[in-house]
């Protein structure tokens, strides 16, 4: 494993927390000729919430899509560097993305339930991975409970997912991602399409999820990063400006650009 000396700006706290879930080393990313991420190096700790924060176009969503290799579906997208997950560099083309994505769930900006029933949405992942029929019910219930949605939908499991409210749909998408028993949950601005009440519910959920999962959440909302995360990375124009425990980053930013962003001078 290559560790770029100049980029190791991880604070002592982060390194003390045992083996990280992801070790990102000198990650650069290109859409065609345009460079979207520039030499990013950071460790994402296990069973913590890590926020990736920055103004629109800073590459934070792209960063998230590298972690499950979902960027591959865009023609012309290319990543260089290394991203270590469970002892393997996931940028290696030989890595089995199906197995990888099963272990790394993802929740998107807008709730995107399938046009199927609540049950079939949650059972989708387990089904494609060949889980037996009689085990599905328990898995679906467990996932819906983890997503704090069970009590609201237990009587309408076979109704269309579109009958749920926006906030419920997003929790359904979280349940759907949890149903494959991933270790990591990637969340790409999961509350940007939701009202404040639904947002608060999701944020509360994120805080409980870190007991069992590593959560990486992308947000352009400072308060959200401050409320839910343990560590925050600040990205600007594809560069990692600062990465620190959230409280430290918000109260004692080391980089003047972070300070300027916190003061509301970007975005």
């Amino acid at each position: 494993m290559v560790v770029q000396g100049q980029m190791v700006q991880l604070s002592q706290d982060i390194r003390d927390e045992g083996a990280p879930a992801f070790q990102v080393r000198d990650l650069s990313f290109f859409y065609g000729k345009e460079q979207v991420l520039k030499g990013i190096t950071l460790d994402i700790p296990k069973r913590k919430v890590t926020a990736i924060m920055g103004p629109s176009g800073c590459g934070k969503s792209t960063f998230l899509r590298v972690l499950n290799r979902l960027y591959e579906i865009v023609p012309g997208a290319r990543a260089t560097g290394e991203v270590w997950f469970d002892g393997r560099n996931i940028l290696d083309p030989r890595v089995d993305v199906v197995g990888l994505r099963r272990r790394i769930g993802m929740v998107f900006q807008k709730p995107n339930p399938f046009p199927k029933s609540v049950f079939d949405n949650v059972a989708y992942g387990p089904r494609i991975h060949g889980v037996r029929r009689r085990e599905l019910k328990a898995i679906v219930e467990r996932a819906l409970r983890q997503a704090a949605l069970w009590d609201e939908v237990k009587d309408k499991l076979h109704k269309s997912a579109f009958d749920l409210s926006g906030g419920q749909q997003q929790r359904l998408c979280i349940a759907r991602a949890l149903a494959t028993s991933p270790e990591v949950l990637l969340m790409d601005e999961p509350t940007s399409a939701l009202d404040p009440a639904a947002t608060a519910r999701i944020e509360g959920l994120v805080r409980t999820l870190k007991e069992d999962f590593t959560v990486v959440i992308v947000t352009h909302n400072l308060q959200q990063a401050a409320r839910v995360s343990d560590h925050t990375a600040f990205l600007l124009l594809g560069e990692l400006v600062e990465y620190a425990p959230t409280e430290e980053l918000f109260t004692r930013p080391k980089d003047p650009r972070t300070e300027a962003y916190l003061a509301g001078r970007f975005s």
Binding site: R101, K110, T180
Partner: peptide
């Protein structure tokens, strides 16, 4: 967004298409 959701769950291209 539906294709992405399916792929992100570990479905293959063909599974995404059919299911």
């Amino acid at each position: 967004s539906l294709r992405e959701a399916s792929l992100a769950l570990g479905a293959t291209h063909w599974q995404t298409m059919w299911r």
